[in-house]
Amino acid sequence: MPELLISGLVMGSIYALLALAINIIYSTTGIINFAHGELVMLGGMFGLVLVVNIGLPLVVGIVVAGGIVAVFAILLYYSTIKPFGDNLGGSLGWLMATLGAGIIFRNVAMLIWGSHPRPFPPLGGSELINIFGVNILQHEIWVLVITLLIAIFFNVVLDKTILGSAIKATASNRNTTRLMGISAEKMVLACFGMSGAVAAVAGFLISPITFAGPEMTVSIGLKGFGAAIIGGLGSSRGAFVGGLILGILEALSMTVVTPGYKDAIVFLVMILTITIKPEGIFNVTYEKKV
């Protein structure tokens, strides 16, 4: 049972990490980047090239891959979201466009690297350490710690800094934000950059667990969206808690049903949460003025 909970927490942290990056883009544009899972995958694949093929140290690899994926995220913004202008809520074109970009990323990755998943070095080696009688990989502790740090970082940036206010102002009304002397475009680009860098970190953390391959995030990506929504879009705290809830729920569901059904259960919970409380656990709704 403790092992199950730990693995639930680890997977939960990964969903949280995805949710946090999805959130930061939502915070500034009000949209969900449906290609986010593929950005994470790119992080893993570039990690493979940098660390395994070229032989860079892991930490350097993370930094370099983070930079590369941040550039990809910014390119993604220019090619699939910017063309729809300021009023993104009015159409769903960006939704189809980001989905399309995800398909391109995945299939081009398959052409370059093949579809076979490959092993990836974990952070802190592959020795087990024993904590309170539970055997745990050092990598798993890193996953928990890094996720927590990034969650705190986003929480502070969004809620406690002037940058955070500017980011949220951009989401609320871009024209007014511009009139206040803030470059809305810069805010959006900064958020896409951050989201991409965090995606790369997530890729490094997931790959040792799932192996690195173009299809590694097909279902994990979806659960990242689920975590963001369960916690409440726009709230870093919500994304973090939402991810952990989803991970633990998934681990616990394995005690009841065969592993194959666990995704079905997780998605069912996601659907029910969206339907019953679309604003998530941490957000409140106001009556919309007509």
């Binding site: 449906f34 969206f225 995704d263 079905a264 998605f267 996601m270 659907i271 969206i274 339907t275």
Partner: peptide, 14 residues
Amino acid sequence: GHYLALITIGFGVI
């Protein structure tokens, strides 16, 4: 909108 998109994707996966 995007909520419905996720719900329907989830349905397909289930």
